[in-house]
Design a protein around this nucleic acid. Structure first.
Lengths: 252, 252
DNA sequence: CCAAAAGTGTTCATAATACACCCATGC
DNA sequence: GCATGGGTGTATTATGAACACTTTTGG
């Protein structure tokens, strides 16, 4: 950005500037929070709305931008922290939704983000407003996506606002990115000690299909170990079958 | 979106809802407009700001969202139409910028779009507020990007707001997308009659490096002609050297 | 010994790159 | 004829997917 030499003329202009000259929309930062459960299934955090509109419907966490106090990125991080106690995880802007009528109250522009939370790190915290917050497994069915959580099963049409669209886009982007970005590492239980099959299971979950281990290993060694992005720890870990070599992600 | 059965309770809620309960930011839709000039160089449309802030600086076209009257996509389309008289071209959301202090007036959230305008279709129109609007060639230099237009040459730091960041992101995205999306076709002079080398020149411009014609042809035939996305018109056109076969893009 | 999971090696199809060469036009 | 750009073919290498087979552990 250009460093501004604020002239007297400009000072005058700024002081007279009427902030309400244009009708302003509300802006929210909404977050699609993905994680993997203990059986390596893709899960998303949803919140049961305690207030209108869409009272009683499930929604992704989100909140109004505190204009002047924070950037939208910060608002998204705050929202993530509020709902999950988690900080310092993968948080990336997804898309901005701004169709008219998507919120029955007024015009609401929602800047959506995707968060990838490592396994076993999601400590769900009921929001300030004591809504229910729950992890739902993402399944696919004829009708589209189904969100299931032990006793509860909800469908796309049970979601508030246009949140089904947002979630679909988040899943699509996650899938498209996984082959050329390092996103998968963010879902590892421990980046400093992981096996090739742990990583492979993450890829399988996200792509929703099984992969060939020999080929996966080959690409992993070529793209990460040979390039120095990942190091072989020289140690192994045993669980069942032959002990597996441990690797560590470099950087970050 | 869920079809809402508006209950009486909800009607009450909505009528009491105070639209100004949260401090609202302004929202703009800004457009990075790319086109190719007659010598196949990548160009961008910039506007000289007639008002503060950044009066006299160059900026990408943009304007405030008319909340309630239009969606952000529509606002971007309106802005494109206002500046260029052009409608119905490639217009895609790029990213949303919302750092604090990026606009000295108040908090301004800018939803940025990229537009690809076909060759020889850009009819620049001075905006309502009679600012200068000009096409600038995009060149690269040690210092970064340089925008040049016959007599005028401006650098990244001459741009208003954080528009240099927006433009950089737009160029990067354009380059990354070109290999797996059909964006290049949007820059053709005529989608219904074009030669392989015309298309190749567009790829070369965007990637900023020269390509091998035999190989380009092979991939083009494999990915577009064999798949039916493009048809061979059977006609040829002469300019210099051997006459070139003409192709036509199917759909859209 | 057997099951299970890790790890190695081979084969085949496809794709990207480099490049040698021929073809049809205007001048 | 020759310069110019269009078009064809071939060789080399890299990548992705399929799969047979070996190794090391626990039981």
């Amino acid at each position: 950005m250009k460093k501004q030499n604020v002239s007297k003329e400009e000072m005058d202009f700024l002081s007279k500037y009427d902030a309400s000259a244009f009708e302003r929309p509300s802006v929210t930062a909404d977050v699609v929070i993905f994680t993997l459960d203990s059986s390596d299934e893709l899960c998303i955090l949803l919140i049961k709305r305690g207030e209108h509109p869409f009272k009683g419907c499930w929604a992704i966490p989100g909140g109004f931008l505190k204009a002047g106090e924070e950037s939208i990125d910060e608002a998204a991080a705050r929202e993530l922290r509020t709902e999950t106690n988690i900080d310092n995880v993968f948080l990336k802007q997804l898309y901005t939704f701004g169709n008219i009528g998507r919120d029955p109250r007024t015009t609401v522009i929602s800047v959506a983000y995707t968060a990838l939370v490592p396994k076993h790190q999601l400590d769900i915290k009921a929001g300030d407003d004591a809504q229910d917050a729950k992890l739902f497994k993402i399944k696919y069915d004829v009708e589209g996506i189904v969100f299931t959580n032990g006793d509860l099963t909800i469908t796309e049409s049970d979601l508030a606002f246009d949140h089904n669209e947002i979630i679909k886009m988040a899943i699509t982007r996650l899938r498209n990115r996984i082959d050329y970005e390092d996103d998968a590492f963010n879902l590892l239980r421990d980046r400093n000690e992981f096996t090739i099959s742990e990583l492979k299971r993450i890829y399988e979950t996200i792509k929703n299909k099984s992969l060939d281990l020999p080929n996966f290993r080959k690409t992993f060694l070529r793209d990460y170990v040979s390039t120095g992005k990942v190091t072989d720890l020289g140690k192994t870990v045993i669980s069942k079958g032959k002990p597996a070599r441990l690797y560590k992600l470099i950087g970050r």
